[in-house]
Simulated scan of single mutants.
Amino acid sequence: MLLALIAFWPTPVDRGASDFIDRITRAVPWLTYDLIETVANVALFVPFGVLLALVLPLHRGLVVPIALATTLIIESGQALILSERTPSLRDIVANVLGATIGLAIVHLRERRKIRD
């Protein structure tokens, strides 16, 4: 639900944070807006990947394709119905990477449980 709310918020979700982000990027020059946005997109999809991995224990091979389909729907929806939002290929890659990290977390945690 939170993912859908953020994805389809009618204006850029970081609009009110521009001064704060500007201060960060001035203080740490390598921490660019694009990097912050990409890391935020990855982080947003990690819980989605965890949730899918837990809900689909016998079909975990579907986690990445579902994440890809979800992010394609989000980016397409932003392009078609949200004039102030900008879809991007970088967002798609970051979102799928986040879901993949979530899947890996579940996998590693389960392997660790088996060893212990």
Rank of each mutant, 00 (worst) to 15 (best):
M1V: 12
L2S: 13
L3F: 12
L5E: 10
I6F: 12
I6A: 13
A7N: 03
A7W: 01
F8W: 10
W9F: 15
P12G: 06
D14Y: 14
R15I: 12
G16Y: 11
A17T: 10
D19L: 12
F20E: 09
F20C: 04
I21W: 11
I21R: 09
D22K: 14
D22P: 00
D22C: 10
I24Y: 05
T25W: 03
R26D: 15
R26G: 10
R26C: 03
R26A: 15
V28W: 11
W30L: 11
W30Y: 09
L31D: 05
T32Q: 09
Y33D: 15
D34R: 12
D34M: 08
D34C: 03
L35H: 08
E37L: 10
E37I: 08
E37C: 04
T38K: 04
V39L: 15
V39H: 12
A40R: 08
N41F: 05
N41A: 06
N41R: 04
V42K: 02
L44I: 02
L44S: 01
F45I: 01
P47Y: 06
P47T: 07
F48S: 01
F48L: 09
G49M: 06
L52Y: 00
L52Q: 02
L52F: 05
A53T: 00
A53P: 02
A53N: 03
L54T: 08
V55M: 14
V55K: 13
G61K: 05
G61S: 07
L62R: 08
L62K: 05
L62D: 03
V64Y: 04
P65C: 02
P65N: 04
I66K: 00
L68V: 08
A69G: 10
A69E: 05
T70K: 06
T70C: 15
L72V: 08
L72Y: 01
I74F: 01
E75P: 05
E75W: 08
Q78D: 05
A79M: 10
L80H: 15
L80I: 11
L82V: 04
S83D: 12
S83L: 09
E84L: 13
E84I: 02
T86A: 14
T86C: 12
P87V: 05
P87Q: 04
S88F: 06
S88Y: 07
L89N: 08
I92H: 01
V93K: 05
V93S: 07
N95H: 09
V96S: 02
L97E: 04
L97G: 05
L97W: 07
G98W: 02
G98L: 02
A99D: 09
T100V: 06
T100A: 15
T100M: 13
I101Y: 10
I101N: 10
G102N: 02
G102E: 01
I105V: 14
I105N: 04
I105A: 12
H107P: 03
L108R: 08
R109S: 15
E110S: 03
E110F: 02
E110L: 03
R111D: 14
K113E: 12
